[in-house]
């Protein structure tokens, strides 16, 4: 779909409906059949996997500024477990790398 104001708004609306469906869907499913452990395992593993699938290509196709930024975020996150600090470390790393 070519990007126009209309298609952009349409895409946002459909994404909003999709998200709303996930919010109310759990309760609706449970009122009929309980969610089994296999489905739960699938959803739990998929939740992180989709983030990995977005991040890995960013590192593979990005410049060294982007790669080092991701590395800095990962290290900061493992050390201090504070997302805001980790993201700031990542952005600062990319900015410093490109300064040189």
């Amino acid at each position: 779909m070519p990007l126009t104001t209309t298609t952009a708004l349409l895409a946002i609306l459909i994404m909003a409906l999709t998200t709303f469906t996930t919010r109310i869907g759990g309760a609706i499913i449970m009122s009929r059949i309980p969610i089994g452990p296999k489905v739960e395992q699938f959803i739990n593993a998929m939740a992180g996997s989709v983030l990995v699938a977005v991040i890995v290509p960013l590192a593979a196709q990005g410049d060294w500024g982007a790669r080092l930024a991701l590395l800095a975020t990962l290290v900061a996150m493992l050390l201090v477990r504070k997302p805001l600090i980790a993201i700031t470390a990542g952005v600062a790393t990319a900015a410093l790398w490109r300064l040189v």
Binding site: V54, I55, G62, A66, A69, L74, P83, A94, A95
Partner: peptide, 18 residues
């Protein structure tokens, strides 16, 4: 120049770890 293009990747990575 300010590294702002990497916010998205850093945010998602932080969410993944945390």
């Amino acid at each position: 120049r300010f590294g702002l293009d990497v916010i998205m990747g850093c945010f998602l990575l932080a969410m993944l770890v945390g």
